[in-house]
Design a protein around this nucleic acid. Structure first.
Length: 109
DNA sequence: AACGTGACAAGGC
DNA sequence: AGCCTTGCCACGT
């Protein structure tokens, strides 16, 4: 990543990710909207990839619109994300997240 | 400065 | 249900 000074779009995205409460997840698209960048879900993935480790941003709560983890199933990142989610009480099987935990605003439960 | 590449999404077949 | 296309836009070559 590259910090060049003024408000980068990544900051907006990271800020939005911080809003996702423990025990809930949100999609890349939702994060993009919340960050004021509608239809730029792709950018969210890019921004998370550029995230420094010690940021405290709950990146693991962001999953794709199909309700699944967007990492190759056997990757280290995939397993890490599973572990972090389960630690928050979210059930994950084969990368699929319990949809009842989806969305942190306008909850459907 | 153009071009390909992404932890995506939505729509068409 | 899959697979392909298009929209998107910051980054590294």
């Amino acid at each position: 990543m590259k910090r060049s000074g003024f408000p980068r779009t990544y900051d907006l995205i990271w800020e939005a990710v911080r809003l996702v409460p423990r025990g809930k997840v949100a999609s890349y698209g939702e994060i993009a909207r919340e960050a004021g960048l509608p239809r730029q879900a792709r950018l969210v993935g890019y921004a998370l990839h550029a995230l420094p480790d010690s940021s405290g941003v709950p990146w693991h709560r962001v999953i794709n619109a199909q309700g699944k983890i967007s990492f190759p199933p056997e990757s280290v990142a995939f397993r890490t994300q599973c572990r972090l989610l389960r630690k928050e009480g979210i059930t994950v099987n084969r990368g699929a997240i319990d949809m009842r935990k989806f969305g942190w605003l306008r909850q459907q439960e």
